[in-house]
Amino acid sequence: MVVKLDRARGVWFVVSFVDDHNHVMARPNEVCFLWSHRRIGDGTRAEILGMQGVGISKHIMVDNFISRCGLYEKCGLIRRDVYNLCCWEKMKLIAKGDAETAVGIMRSRKQKDPDFFEYVLDKEARLKCMFWCDA
Score class of each variant (00 low, 15 high):
residue 47 E to S: 09
residue 27 R to S: 05
residue 46 A to E: 13
residue 25 M to Y: 13
residue 34 L to N: 13
residue 43 G to K: 08
residue 41 G to F: 09
residue 42 D to I: 02
residue 29 N to K: 11
residue 47 E to M: 08
residue 37 H to T: 03
residue 41 G to E: 05
residue 31 V to Y: 03
residue 40 I to D: 00
residue 52 Q to S: 13
residue 38 R to W: 03
residue 53 G to C: 02
residue 38 R to C: 03
residue 29 N to F: 14
residue 33 F to G: 01
residue 40 I to P: 00
residue 45 R to A: 05
residue 25 M to S: 12
residue 37 H to C: 07
residue 43 G to Q: 07
residue 42 D to N: 03
residue 25 M to P: 07
residue 29 N to H: 14
residue 41 G to A: 04
residue 30 E to I: 03
residue 32 C to I: 01
residue 25 M to F: 11
residue 45 R to P: 00
residue 44 T to W: 08
residue 30 E to K: 10
residue 30 E to A: 14
residue 41 G to S: 10
residue 48 I to N: 02
residue 51 M to S: 09
residue 39 R to N: 05
residue 39 R to S: 07
residue 33 F to W: 05
residue 40 I to M: 04
residue 31 V to P: 00
residue 27 R to D: 06
residue 23 H to A: 08
residue 46 A to H: 06
residue 26 A to T: 02
residue 50 G to V: 06
residue 46 A to S: 13
residue 33 F to L: 10
residue 46 A to R: 12
residue 49 L to Q: 11
residue 31 V to H: 06
residue 40 I to W: 00
residue 46 A to F: 07
residue 52 Q to F: 10
residue 49 L to R: 15
residue 49 L to A: 09
residue 26 A to C: 10
residue 50 G to K: 11
residue 47 E to V: 01
residue 32 C to H: 13
residue 34 L to I: 11
residue 25 M to H: 14
residue 36 S to E: 14
residue 49 L to C: 07
residue 45 R to V: 00
residue 24 V to E: 10
residue 40 I to L: 06
residue 37 H to E: 08
residue 38 R to M: 04
residue 25 M to L: 15
residue 47 E to L: 11
residue 23 H to Y: 15
residue 34 L to V: 01
residue 52 Q to L: 12
residue 41 G to R: 03
residue 34 L to K: 13
residue 35 W to P: 01
residue 38 R to Q: 02
residue 46 A to K: 10
residue 36 S to I: 06
residue 35 W to F: 06
residue 40 I to V: 06
residue 30 E to V: 04
residue 51 M to I: 03
residue 43 G to S: 06
residue 31 V to G: 00
residue 29 N to Y: 10
residue 29 N to W: 13
residue 36 S to A: 08
residue 33 F to D: 08
residue 41 G to N: 14
residue 30 E to S: 09
residue 23 H to Q: 11
residue 53 G to P: 01
residue 50 G to S: 15
residue 28 P to T: 04
residue 40 I to E: 00
residue 42 D to P: 00
residue 31 V to T: 03
residue 48 I to A: 04
residue 31 V to E: 12
residue 35 W to A: 15
residue 45 R to G: 00
residue 35 W to D: 10
residue 34 L to M: 15
residue 45 R to H: 09
residue 34 L to A: 13
residue 44 T to F: 05
residue 25 M to Q: 15
residue 46 A to Q: 11
